[in-house]
Design a protein around this nucleic acid. Structure first.
Lengths: 227, 227
DNA sequence: TTGCAATCGATAGTATTACTATCGTTATTA
DNA sequence: TAATAACGATAGTAATACTATCGATTGCAA
């Protein structure tokens, strides 16, 4: 048996949280507390209390909570890129491949346990990403953060998907815009279904899961745009 | 000559900012300061200083800065709904109508001075909406805020556009999802062009304005999805 | 014109946030 | 055995996000 691990560069932290028990606890419990409180209410002090450590110790690993969110987001996008590669590399037909990618992006299908992450509850992390990941870049310091390479996880994932789009229809003029739009929509539509249901047909009252409904909608949109 | 005015209900404030000079100043200067500092750095104290008033006075009008953002957002969506009605009511062909609506939503075309707002710099307000409006609902209190009717401005606008979509293609299964997706994309794509250019073909290096390029992309997407 | 209410500035005060810094103990490693 | 790293404990600071009170001005109504 094996486990995978996502390794992030040193720009993402002050001290690598994967290098110690405390660090791993900060990440795994941080996801849970962040999910419960939301980014605005979340503080390092509250996280520290929940793991019976101290504020100062958490600050040894991350400069501030925004950087912590960037770390978690990149961790998630890197994992997703790996899952997509693992699950779709064998599809030769680009159309089928893209359809599956979209289903994975939406979490419309299960993935094998081998792709689980040690210590990290991936569905909680996904929940955090849905609600908070936009805040990584909806920020006054986007340009500075971007210049340090902290968005490469997301950009790399989008690029790879855009390449598949371009394979299907090389003349389509907006592969990257289309991909970034559906990436955002993949969590927005589920969020809307849960909180502002009048904004979407994705709905709790239907037989399929919200994630599957979102994937159906996005696949419909993408396939009609192409070729 | 005439000016229009957007009137919001009393759930949006503690004291109606349109009822006094100070209130109007809070709104008009608030937009500017918010645009400059970004939501996280923005405080009522800084706003108060910039209009030579006091923190306590600002708090007399708005409970907190999040409510202030909700006020501004609703103000903007209400204005936009009015502009759309004014500028597109004469189109009988639903397709042409939708195309124009999308151009207006993206700010891809000018509007007559008659639709200007007194005391409010609409392009600055638009800039604030682009960067910050998602934070109105990406929030732990979405459900509470929604239950007080504070998102009706946005929901109403989306509904009206979705109706036009349904007119064009009554069998299309996702009119509301499509509209909410492109509403979000209309500011995201411009934001990406400015800060994360690898995520979109909308680009500063092209002859058309970013807003026009975004409108072209969204019109392409919508028209291929329908019928 | 007296008086009342509303408005606002001025000031003060509190709890929490977002950190930074230092110190001492314990565990690890060389 | 000695050095070092990791961490908990504690303290402290500036800013934030408020709430509360007081007094001066202004307009309007009896």
């Amino acid at each position: 048996m094996s486990t995978i691990s996502i390794v992030l560069g040193e720009n993402f932290f002050k001290k690598d949280p994967q290098s110690s028990d405390l660090g791993r606890k900060i990440v795994s419990k941080g996801i849970i507390v962040l999910d419960e409180l939301g980014f605005e209410e979340f503080t390092f002090k509250k996280l520290a209390e929940s793991i019976e450590s101290t504020e100062a110790s958490v600050y040894r690993y991350f400069k501030n909570k925004h950087k912590f969110l960037v770390y978690l987001s990149t961790y998630y996008w890197s994992w997703l890129e790996y899952v997509i590669a693992f699950e779709t590399h064998h599809f030769s037909d680009a159309k089928v491949k893209l359809e599956n990618i979209i289903r994975i992006v939406c979490h419309a299908q299960d993935f094998p346990d081998a792709l689980d992450l040690p210590e990290v509850d991936i569905s909680k992390l996904r929940s955090v990403i849905d609600k908070e990941s936009d805040k990584t870049y909806l920020n006054r310091n986007v340009d500075e953060i971007n210049s340090k390479g902290l968005f490469t996880g997301y950009k790399s994932l989008c690029s790879k998907i855009a390449e598949v789009v371009a394979q299907i229809d090389p003349k389509y003029p907006y592969p990257r815009a289309l991909v970034s739009m559906i990436m955002e929509a993949s969590h927005q539509q589920v969020f809307f279904a849960q909180h502002l249901p009048s904004l979407t047909e994705v709905s709790k009252g239907k037989p399929k899961r919200l994630e599957e409904q979102a994937a159906d909608f996005l696949n419909h949109t993408v396939m009609h745009s192409l070729k």
